[in-house]
Amino acid sequence: MKYKNLIIEKKEFVLLKRYMNLMGYYKDETLLKSVKKLQEELGSAQIFDEADMPKDVIRFNTKITIVSQNGWHRTFKLVLPKDSDVKNDKVSILTPMGAAVMGYAESDSISWEFPSGEQILTIEKVEQDNQYININMVL
């Protein structure tokens, strides 16, 4: 891991904590495992102000290209649940894939549980398209 811990922007951290508190009510076991793992990682995350965020760290509205150990590639944008649109490659933070990549950096490898089983993913490319998130308007 490039930065030793997840790196999360301060407002996004607050929003993630709110989402994680709501997720305990979901019944999907894979999603619950993802949420629990993300919660654990958030416990040791480094929290940065907007101006100090490294450009290679995945956050909301980041376009990510990943490759799996099996060789498949995927490019998608990590979005808030209300903006999720799988057909247009917009993946919600409240999915196993979204939870897996949040706070990681370009070139990091991640081992994560998906419905198809555990996968090892490498983040090939990170492109920022960050927009101000008003956390009071989201939930």
Rank of each mutant, 00 (worst) to 15 (best):
D28F: 07
K10E: 11
K33M: 13
W72N: 14
E124T: 02
L38T: 04
K55N: 10
K82F: 09
Q46V: 14
G103T: 01
V86N: 05
N70T: 12
L78D: 03
K33H: 11
V14E: 12
I120D: 10
A100N: 05
P81A: 09
M137I: 02
S109A: 13
E113D: 15
A105Q: 06
I123N: 02
E29S: 11
K33P: 00
E127N: 09
L94I: 09
V126L: 00
K77R: 11
S109W: 06
M137V: 01
N61I: 09
D56F: 08
E40S: 11
T75H: 07
W72G: 09
D83P: 02
N5Q: 14
Q131L: 10
I7V: 15
A45T: 05
K33I: 13
K33N: 14
K33V: 12
Q128M: 01
K77Y: 05
E29K: 12
T122G: 01
L31K: 06
G24S: 12
F13R: 02
A51C: 11
I93G: 09
K27V: 13
Y3K: 14
D56V: 08
E29N: 13
A100P: 07
L22S: 14
V14L: 05
K4G: 07
T62F: 03
A100E: 09
D83A: 10
Y25L: 08
K10V: 04
K33E: 15
F114T: 08
R74K: 15
A105I: 09
N134G: 01
L22M: 09
Q131E: 15
F60M: 08
V91Y: 06
I133R: 01
M137Y: 09
V86S: 13
A105P: 11
V86Q: 13
L78I: 07
K77S: 04
K17F: 00
L16H: 00
I123T: 07
N130P: 01
L121W: 14
L22F: 03
D56W: 00
S34L: 04
K77I: 10
L80F: 03
F60P: 01
T65S: 10
M97S: 02
S44Q: 09
W72H: 09
L38V: 01
I93N: 02
N70D: 15
L31T: 12
V138E: 07
R18T: 06
K27N: 13
M20H: 04
W112G: 02
Q69P: 03
P115V: 08
N134P: 06
E9W: 02
S116T: 10
G98R: 03
F114I: 12
E40P: 04
M53A: 04
S109I: 10
G103A: 10
M53I: 14
L94K: 11
L15K: 00
L78E: 06
T65P: 07
E124P: 03
A99V: 05
R18K: 12
Q128H: 02
F60L: 14
K27D: 15
R18C: 03
T62N: 08
